[in-house]
Design a protein around this nucleic acid. Structure first.
Length: 985
DNA sequence: TCTTGCCAATTTTTT
DNA sequence: ATTGGCAAGA
């Protein structure tokens, strides 16, 4: 078997090997999206004969693209991998603009304005224009407009007089960027779009385009995808509408539909099996996401056992909440006998501001952690300063960078001097840098005479920069950034400067400088590798812009700095650390144990959130990061920004009372043997031995989550000493009396469902009789073996400690199961369904909301298939295709649904129903046939449905539409039931 | 005029 | 806790 397909389930293979030209892979969290996309890249290279340099693969974050590169290197080897055009939209666009930007009049050596730069520019403009708008809002609005492709002029035409202020600011902002030869994040995309529209030949080599996290693309990115693929019109995207959490950045979920409308031959593969989380976590998460009524019902098929219920914990204050996390982390680590380690744990936050409390609590308790997401490193002032020096050296026109360093270290250049200089430069219509040079060399003068000291300071700055520029010219290779940094820090006596200015933490700041140099060094080293990631394939007839290699290395380094999110080098990754991250930054990742604190109204949903659904999805994304243990918590009081006047908080509305009751426990789970084993199984790790599990117990203040009542109150002991006795540091020496395991606490019972109540009461009575008040390991073993805390609740799916596969069909037949109809419903939008009817196939210009689907399922048994033995020959490397005639959106859209149920095995041959070269794909796919199940063979036939969408003049009434949905759902259910028995694997 | 020191305000999420 | 804005010394 093809090694590329190893370890993929049938639906995933379906997606990987599909010969469909336009393919959408829709998949819930944990279903192996990225794995599938990666495998598809490899597959396309090896089976379709695409050259890596002719394949564009867009990811959303730098981390994702790095991960993908690593996976691909393993799959296809570094040689091929390094030639792929793979990266974030922004970085890919930058590459094209570097090479071909001259074609649209972009100046050489442009820099990238990060959001601090943008903010600084806007601040100046707003001040100058005496505008009232806040810098941040202006920044956001401008970015929005750019993402929608609106230039200042275009904006001016469609906006009211009162908004003209913004137009002026926008204009001024653009010209300020242009003056400094900068592009901001949005410009990278917009300008690249301009380039490819005017000069499509730049991507004429591109055979296929793949996009990860498609639900997060905005309009411009969507356009770019199509422009990239203009030549050959072969696109694969993966995405999940439920995980769309970047609406604030103008991401548009509708792009999924837009794409289907544009490409009538869109095929869709659904992945439904979740390989990440316990069934109970999935259930809880689904309970959250399903509150979104506009969303299509969709199955999330668990492959793991039910596990232990997630926790929803109330705590008195935010500090208590942080402390509670400390205790639960310690408990989880100790009681699982090394199964759960610090690095297995993540704290996911709605906003970075929540981290401080947690960080201090962790710091005091000695819990190692690393904070990701907050752009920390490159924001450090000392790092920023040095980077600004590099930027000025790279491009002296970069006015903001220049202003950032003009008086750092202090050169006696104050506000007044700066005002004189910028004012003069403005008047003379000369870049600031040139003006300064002219002034100190006596060719020009400022309105008011500059102070001697200031002039001297300017002199030394100019000297330094000029010397550095010379050095850059002399440096013919990628070591330029490194060389320059050394030169600059030395000439500035930067270390002494740091010592003087930051006497408190001078060493850590210097360490940051060292780190920056290290990164420059790494960049230099990796640039020497076989293939330059930077290089785009040469295209005949289009000249690439060449530049000095040292300069290029420098500008690339600076671009990486600007585009990096968490470029903090993974140097200290080896040590065991808890991860603290924003939810946004956690997307695509997973951890065995996840904490989500502050689940109160105002945090989630955030008080300033615009779209409530997006906040819900955010919580959903956070919850589905967890594999085995999931803890949500909230403080009952918030000192500052609470909801009520008294600072009391209320639980997020996303966690409805019913959901809380059915799917959460009020306190951390008892971590006895059974629970621990279930965790081990979910993580696919060896079960720890009982000895391992018990040996650390004595370090814990309690083996239970009993420091607070389940109503979130401070537990009052007889002597009332909890509070002071339990500093975070001295658990170990606290009075044994307080460590006794509580057996009955009335408060906790209110939450318990009947089943868990039963065994909550009596299991631990043994312990209270122990003279020490604390269980020895063996005692604990004895009690916990008897305790049998229910790991499950009575749910149809509750199959403890058993892979859930056998139950799959029952889930699928539930009314909330994902059906083809419901998914199509999503794409059609609400109410787009109708009973199936013949639909005129050639209606032009589809109005999406009015469209309807014809659902039918085809199975092509026997002769229609190539015998399995031959399937491996099916997709031999093909000659590259000539570009195909365009399929215009005016054609009816025919979506091919290739919904392989997660569990059953499928013969790959079915893909042959599509002609291999795609030219006649449309015709083939529009044929819809009734699905038939080939149940007798015991082998699952493919469910290969063709959904034809076309516009409808008039819609049926709501009743009819519902009927239509029901109908197709029933068909699906029927099939699922029938398929339930025969499974091949 | 530049520097220093104090006070106030501030935090949604990312390329 | 960090940064920006303002007032008083050098």
């Amino acid at each position: 078997m093809d090694p590329i397909l190893d370890g993929l389930n049938t639906a995933q293979r379906e997606a990987v090997t599909s010969s469909a030209p336009i393919l959408q892979v829709l998949a819930p969290p944990g279903s192996g999206k990225t794995k599938t996309l990666t495998a598809r890249v490899a597959y396309l290279l090896s089976h379709h004969g695409y050259l890596p340099q002719d394949v564009i693969c867009c990811t959303f974050t730098i981390k994702a693209s790095r991960e993908m590169r690593e996976r691909l290197a393993k799959l296809i080897g570094e040689r091929l991998e390094s030639r792929l055009i793979l990266g974030t939209f922004h970085s890919i666009c930058r590459r094209y603009l570097v090479k071909y930007g001259y074609l649209i009049g972009l100046r050489k050596g442009f820099g990238i304005a990060d959001s601090d730069d943008s903010r600084a520019i806007l601040r100046r403009i707003i001040k100058r224009l005496n505008a009232t708008i806040e810098v941040k809002t202006a920044q956001g609005k401008i970015s929005r407009h750019k993402a929608h492709g609106l230039s200042p002029d275009a904006l001016a035409e469609r906006v009211k007089a009162e908004e003209m202020e913004l137009v002026d600011i926008y204009r001024a902002y653009q010209s300020a960027l242009a003056d400094s030869n900068l592009l901001d994040y949005d410009d990278l995309l917009v300008r690249c779009g301009d380039l490819l529209r005017e000069h499509p030949e730049c991507v004429s080599n591109v055979q296929t385009v793949l996009v990860d996290e498609f639900q997060d693309t905005n309009i411009i990115q969507y356009d770019l995808m199509n422009l990239f693929a203009a030549q050959n019109r072969r696109i694969t995207i993966v995405g999940d509408p439920d995980q769309s959490i970047y609406g604030f950045r103008s991401a548009e979920i509708q792009n999924l539909r837009r794409m289907q409308r544009r490409y009538s031959n869109t095929s869709i593969v659904l992945l439904e099996s979740n390989y990440r989380s316990s069934a109970s976590i999935l259930k809880s998460a689904q309970g959250v996401i399903e509150q979104d009524t506009m969303r299509p019902a969709k199955t999330l098929q668990a492959t793991h056992s039910f596990g232990t219920l997630p926790v929803l914990r109330k705590l008195p204050t935010a500090n208590a909440e942080a402390h509670w996390m400390v205790l639960e982390i310690k408990r989880a680590v100790a009681m699982t006998g090394g199964l759960v380690r610090m690095s297995d744990i993540a704290i996911l936050l709605r906003s970075t501001s929540l981290s401080t409390r947690i960080e201090t609590a962790f710091g005091r308790a000695g819990i190692p952690y690393k904070m990701v997401g907050g752009r920390k490193f490159f924001d450090r002032t000392e790092v920023k300063t040095l980077v600004n020096y590099l930027r000025v050296v790279s491009h002296t026109g970069h006015a903001d960078a220049l202003l950032g360093i003009i008086n750092v270290p202090p050169r006696r250049i104050g506000d007044e001097t700066i005002r004189q200089l910028t004012g003069g430069a403005d008047k003379a219509q000369v870049p600031l840098w040139n003006f300064i040079k002219d002034v100190i060399q006596g060719r020009r003068s400022t309105e008011k005479k500059l102070q001697k000291a200031a002039e001297q300071g300017l002199c030394s700055l100019v000297k330094l920069i000029d010397a550095a520029k010379q050095k850059l010219q002399d440096c013919p290779d990628a070591s330029a950034p490194c060389v320059l940094l050394e030169h600059i820090t030395e000439s500035l006596s930067f270390q002494e400067y740091l010592i003087k200015t930051y006497p408190l933490d001078e060493d850590s700041r210097w360490a940051n400088v060292k780190e920056l140099m290290g990164q420059a060094n790494d960049a230099a080293a990796s640039a020497g590798d076989v293939a330059q990631e930077e290089d785009l394939p040469e295209i005949e007839g289009v000249e690439q812009q060449q530049s000095h290699p040292g300069e290029e290395a420098l500008s690339k380094f600076l671009a990486n700095v600007a585009l990096a999110t968490e470029a903090t080098k993974e140097g200290d990754m080896e040590t065991e650390k808890v991860t603290i991250s924003t939810i946004h930054a956690a997307k695509g990742l997973e951890w065995p144990v996840v904490f989500i604190p502050a689940v109160y109204n105002g945090s989630i949903p955030h008080s300033r959130a615009e779209v409530i659904d997006e906040e819900r999805r955010l919580l959903y994304v956070a919850m589905t990061r967890a594999q085995a243990l999931l803890y949500l918590s909230l403080p009952l009081r918030q000192p500052r920004l609470g909801e009520g006047e008294d600072g009391s908080t209320s639980l997020t509305p996303f966690l409805t009372p019913k959901l809380v009751k059915d799917r959460f426990r009020p306190k951390g789970p008892q971590l006895h043997e059974k629970v621990v084993y279930a965790i081990a199984d979910i993580l696919r790790r060896p079960r720890p031995t009982p000895d391992d599990m018990y040996k650390e117990l004595n370090s814990l203040p309690s083996t239970l989550d009993d420091r607070w009542t389940s109503e979130g109150e401070e537990r009052k002991d007889a002597d009332g000493q909890w509070k002071d006795a339990m500093g975070p540091n001295d658990e170990a020496k606290s009075n044994p009396k307080r460590r006794r395991l509580d057996s009955n606490q009335p408060t906790s019972t209110t939450y318990m469902s009947a089943s868990s109540l039963m065994n909550n009461s009596s299991n631990f009575q043994v312990s209270t009789t122990l003279s020490t008040g604390f269980l020895s390991a063996r005692d604990y073993a004895a009690t916990s073996a008897a305790s049998q805390e229910p790991v499950t609740k009575s749910t149809p799916n509750a199959v403890p400690e058993q892979p859930i596969t056998k139950k799959a069909s029952s889930t699928a037949s539930r009314k909330d199961g994902l059906t083809q109809a419901s998914i199509s419903n999503f794409f059609g939008g609400p109410g787009s369904f109708q009973k199936r009817e013949p639909i005129p196939a050639s209606r032009p210009s589809i109005q999406y909301p009015q469209s309807s689907y014809q659902t039918a399922q085809t199975t092509r048994p026997g002769p229609a298939f190539v015998p399995p033995a031959l399937t491996s020959h099916r997709l031999q490397p093909r000659p590259l295709q000539p570009s195909r005639p365009a399929l215009e959106p005016a054609q009816p859209s025919n979506y091919t649904w290739m919904a392989a149920p997660s569990r059953p095995a499928v013969k790959p041959a079915r893909m042959l129903t599509q002609p291999p070269n795609g030219n006649s794909a449309v015709e083939a796919e529009t044929k819809s046939e009734e699905a038939k199940q080939e149940s007798s063979t015991g082998i699952q036939s493919v469910t290969f449905n063709t959904t034809t969408m076309a516009s409808l003049q008039q819609q049926g009434g709501p009743g009819r539409r519902t009927l239509g949905i029901r109908r197709s759902m029933n068909g699906w259910e029927e099939r699922m039931k029938r398929e339930g028995g025969g499974q091949v694997r």
